[in-house]
Amino acid sequence: MLPTPEAVNEWGSEQFTSALRHDQNNGKYNRSLRQLLHVGFKVAAKLGDRYLKELESHETVISRNVTANLFERHMRPVFLGL
């Protein structure tokens, strides 16, 4: 159920992030694309320094999204009951 590469090439940043962000209430969320991303982490890890440099260069955006996902969606409800 993945979109075609041609379709993804037409997406803007809002469409792309909506497809990947685990928000089942968002009609643009794509479970298959998100799973592909998770599988792709193994491939990315094999890129070694190239992957790590990209992580470093985009640290601000990545850390904001990881914090929102891990803290707000997982830790806060469990430990703070919110």
Results as ranks from 00 to 15, higher is better:
T17G: 01
T17V: 12
T17P: 00
S18F: 01
A19D: 03
A19C: 09
A19P: 02
A19L: 09
L20K: 04
L20V: 06
L20I: 09
L20R: 02
R21A: 08
R21D: 02
R21Y: 12
H22V: 14
H22W: 13
H22Q: 08
D23C: 03
D23K: 03
D23E: 10
D23H: 01
D23P: 00
Q24T: 06
N25F: 14
N25R: 15
N26S: 09
G27C: 09
K28N: 08
K28C: 07
K28D: 08
K28L: 15
N30P: 03
R31D: 11
R31C: 10
R31F: 11
S32F: 15
S32M: 14
L33D: 04
L33F: 15
R34H: 12
Q35S: 12
Q35H: 11
Q35V: 12
Q35I: 11
L36Q: 10
L36P: 03
L37E: 07
L37W: 11
L37M: 15
L37P: 01
H38R: 10
H38Q: 10
V39I: 12
G40M: 15
F41P: 00
F41D: 03
K42C: 06
K42Y: 09
V43G: 01
V43M: 12
A44G: 02
A44R: 08
A45N: 09
K46T: 07
K46M: 14
K46Y: 08
L47V: 06
G48H: 09
R50Q: 09
R50I: 13
R50D: 01
Y51E: 04
K53T: 07
K53R: 14
K53M: 13
E54K: 06
E54W: 09
E54C: 07
L55E: 03
E56N: 07
E56V: 07
S57G: 05
S57F: 12
H58V: 04
H58D: 10
H58F: 11
H58S: 10
H58L: 11
E59I: 08
T60Q: 04
T60V: 04
T60F: 02
V61L: 08
I62C: 02
I62T: 01
S63W: 06
S63Y: 09
R64Q: 09
R64Y: 13
R64N: 09
R64E: 14
N65F: 13
N65A: 07
N65T: 02
V66R: 00
V66Q: 02
V66A: 11
T67V: 12
A68K: 09
A68R: 04
F71C: 08
F71M: 11
E72C: 03
H74N: 02
M75L: 15
R76Y: 00
R76T: 00
